[in-house]
Amino acid sequence: MPISERQTARETDYQAQIQQNIERIKRDLPPLFERDISYDIYTEDICFTDPINTFHGKLSYRIVYWSLRFHAQLFFTKIALDLHDVSQTEIEIAATQTKSACADWFITGVTNPDLWR
């Protein structure tokens, strides 16, 4: 197979994997306040950004979501996460826009298909 065909096949596989992960994020995030999300599709260099803070790394990403669930249970009797958009904003960037009862969060994650399962 010529190099250009292999590159096209790789790009097609990459885009298919991006779409699978976007669909998974769409399933994972809405019940965030009820249960933890799955972290196996995220790379170690993921970045969480909201209007006030930026956190780097998978452990920080897990802590952010744990903290959101913990504080939501402390301060709210009923809370939900509305997923407004998940999109591929750049070749290696997937951005998620969500809204809850208390704030708008913008979550940006760096994707790497070599680390996806």
Score class of each variant (00 low, 15 high):
46 I>V: 11
100 S>W: 08
112 N>C: 10
86 V>W: 01
15 Q>H: 14
13 D>V: 11
78 K>C: 02
86 V>L: 01
6 R>A: 14
84 H>T: 03
20 Q>N: 11
15 Q>V: 00
69 R>W: 12
58 K>Y: 10
64 V>A: 07
48 F>W: 11
113 P>W: 11
70 F>M: 13
111 T>K: 01
112 N>K: 06
20 Q>K: 14
110 V>N: 12
9 A>L: 13
88 Q>G: 02
109 G>H: 01
66 W>S: 08
102 C>N: 15
40 D>T: 13
45 D>G: 09
39 Y>A: 02
68 L>F: 14
99 K>S: 12
59 L>M: 06
71 H>G: 10
53 N>L: 09
25 I>F: 04
2 P>F: 06
63 I>M: 14
108 T>H: 08
13 D>L: 14
40 D>E: 03
114 D>Y: 10
41 I>Y: 04
86 V>Q: 06
35 R>M: 01
106 F>S: 08
48 F>G: 03
101 A>C: 01
12 T>D: 14
107 I>C: 04
59 L>H: 09
90 E>N: 04
27 R>Y: 00
51 P>K: 09
67 S>N: 12
96 T>G: 07
78 K>S: 07
25 I>T: 07
1 M>Y: 08
108 T>S: 13
4 S>W: 11
4 S>V: 14
4 S>G: 00
54 T>W: 04
37 I>A: 02
61 Y>V: 00
44 E>C: 01
48 F>D: 04
13 D>E: 09
45 D>R: 10
34 E>Q: 14
73 Q>W: 11
9 A>G: 07
21 N>P: 00
109 G>E: 03
21 N>Q: 15
83 L>D: 08
73 Q>D: 15
117 R>Y: 06
76 F>W: 13
117 R>G: 13
107 I>P: 04
41 I>L: 03
108 T>Q: 05
28 D>K: 01
86 V>N: 02
83 L>E: 09
